[in-house]
Computed example of a mutant assay.
Amino acid sequence: MDAYLEEELIDLFTFYVQNPNSQECASKKSRIIEIGRELFEDGGQDAMENMFYSVSIRIKEEIGSDLSENRSWWNGISEGWNY
């Protein structure tokens, strides 16, 4: 399941980064937040950290974008996740 979610996050973030003015961005961001909740429910904050790290590395390598500002989208899911 994690591999599926990782690929989905990569697709969602890639679209978001490459099409920042698209009307679809709100729904993409919503799904990214939902995946964060799923990860937390399944594996806690560690699962969120591991997934965000691997996705951000792949995005950086594949399209050269830094996702660090997007970490805040998962704020509120876990008390320890405050970016």
Rank of each mutant, 00 (worst) to 15 (best):
M1C: 14
D2F: 05
A3G: 04
Y4N: 06
L5G: 14
E6W: 04
E7G: 08
E7S: 05
E8W: 12
L9Q: 14
L9H: 08
L9T: 12
I10A: 12
D11H: 02
D11R: 01
D11M: 02
D11I: 00
L12C: 13
L12I: 12
L12N: 01
L12D: 08
F13E: 01
F13T: 01
T14E: 09
F15S: 09
Y16K: 01
Y16A: 08
Y16W: 00
Q18P: 03
Q18A: 05
Q18T: 12
N19Y: 03
N19T: 01
P20C: 08
P20M: 05
P20T: 05
P20W: 07
N21T: 14
N21I: 13
N21A: 15
N21Q: 12
S22M: 00
Q23K: 15
Q23A: 15
Q23T: 14
E24T: 06
E24C: 04
E24R: 05
C25K: 11
C25A: 10
C25Q: 04
C25D: 10
A26Y: 08
K28S: 13
K29M: 08
K29F: 02
K29L: 12
S30E: 09
S30Y: 05
R31E: 02
I32H: 00
I32E: 03
I33V: 10
I33E: 07
I33L: 07
E34H: 09
I35V: 06
I35A: 05
I35E: 05
G36P: 08
G36A: 06
G36V: 11
G36R: 08
R37E: 03
R37M: 15
E38C: 11
E38V: 14
E38M: 02
E38H: 06
L39W: 10
E41I: 07
E41K: 12
D42G: 11
D42R: 15
D42P: 15
D42E: 05
G43H: 05
G44Y: 04
G44D: 03
Q45V: 15
D46P: 10
D46M: 04
D46L: 11
A47R: 05
A47L: 15
A47M: 10
E49C: 04
E49K: 09
F52V: 08
F52G: 03
Y53P: 05
V55F: 11
V55I: 06
S56E: 03
I57V: 12
R58T: 04
R58K: 03
I59Q: 00
K60H: 06
K60W: 11
E61Y: 14
E61S: 10
E61N: 06
E61L: 04
E62D: 14
E62W: 01
I63D: 07
G64L: 01
G64Y: 01
G64R: 01
D66R: 00
D66A: 02
L67A: 14
L67R: 06
S68C: 06
S68M: 09
E69K: 13
E69H: 07
S72G: 10
S72P: 06
W73Y: 02
W73T: 02
W74C: 13
W74V: 01
N75F: 07
G76M: 09
G76D: 00
I77G: 00
I77D: 04
S78E: 09
S78W: 00
S78Y: 10
E79D: 14
E79I: 05
G80M: 15
W81Q: 07
N82T: 15
N82L: 14
Y83G: 13
Y83V: 11
